[in-house]
Design a protein around this nucleic acid. Structure first.
Lengths: 411, 411
DNA sequence: GATTATTAATAAATATTTTTAATAAGTTTG
DNA sequence: CAAACTTATTAAAAATATTTATTAATAATC
């Protein structure tokens, strides 16, 4: 005898009103509550949602019937009859996250309880603004889904990270695959047959770290994505902040330097021109050409062919040149983050993206710049931590974005 | 026969649970809805709050009995029976707002429908960190309340703006009147006998402009307070953003210049050192001393005694020197605002505070700096407007802060 | 180890809300 | 100007939720 299939209707408001609508909303609230508290009793739900105990009990029993939550036995009592505790069923439903990079794709499968069950990294792919590239992407997603055919009916959403400008509400991507009238999310959704959601990469990573990463109870968090470019995800009161059109967090293109370097955005003096993976790589190459010694130069290889990954690897091996350049980069970036701290007074700033994999080599210079450039009172409020998810923040975030949208019926 | 007194119990959750709690919450929701929609029918409420029409009708009739809302006659029909429209009763209750400045206080009275019924400006006062100064402040408030003794029982809240660091949740003020254990808000509340709320001045002004000023339907708004110092209020999704400890929006102290001017905060290079009322005044004085001609110099008066108000007055009279200095200041400030626009992607940036009273003389240089320093796509999203409330933004905001807290029972 | 206090779950009674239907009040159209 | 059509309000019936009371289970106490 197989377990009954869950009743996904509660994740939608379509075609219901009145009491049915309220019940769905309440059930979603129960799940949202379990999402943060992990487990709870009928009494807890009654208190939390301001409903009577019998009502809470009936909701719980329906959710158990729906196979979305499960009775996990008795709780340790505090001096009375022991209460039954309930929690989410981890295999109730699944979500897929796709992290689209320039030369590869990472794709993963998340269960109901936010465990990353499977991840496939570095799937070869060329991100180009062509229909062919889009087709290749949907093929990769389809193939991944095919590997989990027995779960397919329980995969409720797909989240996709695309760098550049994305409107998460309309599902339009402006920087890539923008060659048809329909929003990109809908086109992909038609291809793969599962509700699909688009998100900007830095925001997605921020959400991943927030829901399942280094963030604990902090509700106002900045996630600095130091990758090839420089991006930022903003979490305000536990929610991603988008701005008017979803273009918030364009940290890389704030006017910051008096330099003459022309950014790929067309402006001069962008922060990204000196504090990003590309800037780091260029500076390292420049200095090696100028005669600086480094692990990277000793190998007698072609300077032009040094990759960012090599630089990060060199930092891990305590290469003096890289550490020195990182310290300078960190000082500049720290000054920029000081601005953000004065403005946001956040509880936590998380450093993510490729360059953050150099660990303390980048964190410490930023930390000391913060001490230099922010007011003590404000600075003391703010922790500075390294990403916990690292490379996987993108996939995790994409899964969680899809999960969040489906669970809140917000689409 | 006098009108029945309103039932203020709905503005509290104390001592109720179950159905009574739900009814109070629903009634508050009705009022919150009327707050933004100005008037509505029973049907509207039913649809908006997802409750049945009879339930909505019973809530409305209770609120009418409570004298909080009133039947305002029939609406123009769209092809059927005309519906009754309901709206707030403007004299149902009142709120007081106090804008505390360095050398004076502005204080005003707001009615339930957000009309500023009475305002008393420039009440002499010395803001000092002494018990005497605090006593003087409470005296001013008490005297103001005494003038409206017939309304006193209906004054439900007092909002107070204090510059510097304020925690609106705990009610502590750190920059002023911080010489006792208890939070300042509670101390004042005990003195005047009305629930009291503290707020930072820039945030309060931002809230005033948002609820009753130049902001129309925009939900993500930055309010730049260019006064003696430089502050900012941030509105995100229609709510004030506070940050971890309520220290958000410290725009004046972001590290921005390479200059050697020491800011009163102790750091060097603060934005405020070159783009604030004080900076403007100093620069004007400097240039006049250096021989520049201006209306201000012609009067043959003591340069040292020129006040910021004189400078603004001169700008209104098209004084070339002031306009020139404002243009330079606007360019620098515009560059800083460009950073904010890249980060927040707001729908609207509002310029307020004393210096903004120079109108287009400050707005246009900022506007052109924005064009220069932001990406087109992002910049086109953002309007730049001058404050509508001007000097009164502070009082209006303080009243509205108190009103908002009371109406949402959030204290 | 029985008793008491405490807490959870369940059941019955009560109260409230929603549904459904009917009525009233208007608008539009032939 | 009346018939047909909309929409709002009211009323009664049905459904649902909350209260209150009861029972069950457990820990602490004597």
């Amino acid at each position: 005898m197989t377990a009954p299939q869950p009743n996904y209707l509660i994740f939608s408001n379509e075609g219901v009103s009145g009491v049915a609508w309220k019940n769905r909303a309440l059930k979603r609230s129960v799940i949202a509550y379990l999402d943060v508290s992990d487990s709870c009793t009928v009494m807890d739900i009654s208190r939390e949602l301001n409903i009577s105990v019998p009502k809470a009990a009936s909701l719980v029993s329906e959710l158990v019937q729906d196979n979305l939550i499960r009775d996990y036995g008795k709780i340790d009592s505090t001096g009375g009859r022991k209460a039954n505790v309930y929690g989410l069923v981890n295999d109730a439903c699944y979500f897929i996250g796709v992290d689209v990079k320039k030369y590869y794709v990472n794709i993963g499968l998340l269960d109901f309880k936010k465990h990353l069950l499977s991840i496939r990294e570095n799937v070869p792919f060329q991100l180009e603004n062509t229909p062919g590239s889009l087709r290749a992407l949907t093929d990769i997603i389809r193939r991944f889904i095919a590997d989990f055919s027995e779960l397919e009916s329980r995969i409720l959403g797909v989240g996709i990270n695309i760098s550049g400008r994305v409107n998460h509400v309309t599902g339009y991507s402006y920087s890539f695959f923008h060659f048809q009238e329909e929003p990109l999310s809908r086109i992909i959704q038609q291809e793969i047959g599962i509700p699909t959601f688009l998100e900007n990469d830095s925001r997605s990573m921020a959400y991943g770290e927030f829901m399942n990463g280094v963030v604990k109870n902090e509700r106002n968090v900045l996630f600095i994505n130091i990758d090839f470019g420089l991006g930022m995800g903003i979490l305000i009161d536990g929610n991603l902040y988008y701005g008017k059109s979803g273009f918030s967090g364009e940290l890389g293109h704030i006017p910051f330097f008096q330099n003459e370097k022309i950014c790929h955005c067309g402006k001069r003096g962008c922060l990204e021109t000196e504090t990003s993976g590309i800037a780091l790589l260029e500076e390292i190459k420049e200095r090696i050409r100028g005669g600086s010694s480094s692990i990277l130069s000793q190998k007698n290889r072609d300077v032009d062919r040094i990759r960012l990954e090599d630089v990060i690897e060199a930092a891990r091996k305590q290469d003096t040149l890289v550490i020195e350049v990182l310290a300078e980069l960190g000082d500049k970036l720290g000054k920029a983050i000081a601005i953000l701290i004065n403005i946001f007074n956040p509880e936590l700033v998380v450093l993510g993206g490729k360059v953050s994999e150099t660990g303390e080599h980048i964190r410490l210079p930023i930390r000391s710049a913060l001490n230099k450039y922010t007011l003590g009172l404000v600075n003391n409020d703010t922790q500075l931590k390294l990403s916990r998810l690292g490379e996987r923040a993108g996939v995790m975030g994409a899964c969680l974005i899809a999960r969040g949208k489906v669970l809140s019926a917000a689409y």
